[in-house]
Design a protein around this nucleic acid. Structure first.
Length: 289
DNA sequence: GTGTTTGTTATCAA
DNA sequence: CTTGATAACAAACA
């Protein structure tokens, strides 16, 4: 489940690999989430050069030498972006180490791939086809960012005061509030559960029941968990891989997510799992109040 | 055939 | 208008 740290991991890998290269071929296999269309992708993207790769929340933004054209990629649940340098038709990557779902590339989950001027290739794999590829104008991009994305963790926009005031204003449960991208951009199911555990707050608590002190602890927990997860190159639970096809290392640091019925690493109590905001929600009933 | 998985949006009620 | 709650949707797999 690519959340902020996973998308950031991919962004850094792809930025290093792709900036300065131009699109020489685009191949799409029966994949529908491509906007405005497969044809327009070829028409608009061919021969365009990648200027930079940015991120907002879980959205990847590929900037081009065309200043009114942006290539957006959302990985949703199972999307992967894997870069391979091709020399003489053979990949430099060690295929045996490649963790792409479906094995070596391209495979049955490859929905599209992009060939660059130096023959290197970027594969877009997505087992469930929920992710999307989208071309937008600058005005469209600005509208999307404005409408859908709140402040970023680790940025100056997300302050202690912002979070203190945010929780005051909502009676919704804190888990649902933290999942709302318009309030805070980038958190998903894994890191919300982890941040709530680290701050000792039960996910089902209504946001406005949080004391100022708890909001501060939550603010610190969010930043801590996101920072550490980026450093670990993300969490691989099911299918996430970085831009080189390697798994993330944060899985070994998870305290509650995916640990249903296992012992709490702090107090040995059994980790509970409930459904909250329509999502599997993990917590320790003893450590979290 | 059923339940489960999550990111996001649609829909409806208050 | 806002807010919150929930359904729906995307697709695959055990």
């Amino acid at each position: 489940m690519p959340e902020l740290p996973e998308v950031e991991t991919v962004r850094l890998d792809l930025k290093e690999a792709l900036v300065g290269k131009s699109f020489k071929d685009i191949v799409v296999f029966g994949f529908k989430n491509i906007f405005p269309s497969k044809l327009s992708f070829k028409r608009k993207l061919l021969d365009k050069r990648i200027a930079d790769i940015k991120r907002r929340g879980k959205l990847l933004i590929i900037e081009l030498d065309d200043l009114d054209l942006y290539f957006l990629i959302h990985l949703k649940m199972t999307g992967q972006l894997i870069y391979q340098e091709i020399v003489g038709g053979h990949s430099l990557s060690d295929v045996s180490k490649l963790k792409a779902v479906g094995g070596k590339l391209p495979n049955r989950y490859t929905r599209a791939y992009f060939v660059f001027n130096d023959k290197s290739v970027l594969y877009f794999n997505d087992l469930r086809k929920f992710g999307y590829l989208k071309l937008v104008s600058q005005a469209e991009l600005e509208a999307i960012l404005e409408r859908n994305y709140g402040p970023e963790p680790l940025s100056l926009e997300l302050t202690e005061d912002y979070l203190i005031n945010l929780v005051k204003k909502h009676s919704i449960n804190i888990k649902a509030l933290l999942l709302n991208q318009q309030k805070i951009a980038g958190l998903g199911n894994i890191y919300v559960d982890e941040a709530l555990f680290l701050s000792g707050i039960l996910p089902q608590r209504s946001a406005n029941s949080l004391k100022r002190k708890e909001a501060v602890l939550l603010f610190e927990a969010i930043n801590k968990v996101i920072k550490k997860a980026i450093k670990s190159k993300g969490t691989t639970f099911n299918s996430f891989v970085d831009g080189k096809g390697n798994k993330g290392n944060y899985s070994q640091h998870l305290k509650v997510y995916g640990r249903f019925k296992q012992k709490c690493l702090v107090c040995q109590f059994e980790i509970k799992k409930v459904k909250l905001a329509g999502r599997g929600t993990h917590y320790c009933p003893k450590c979290q109040k």
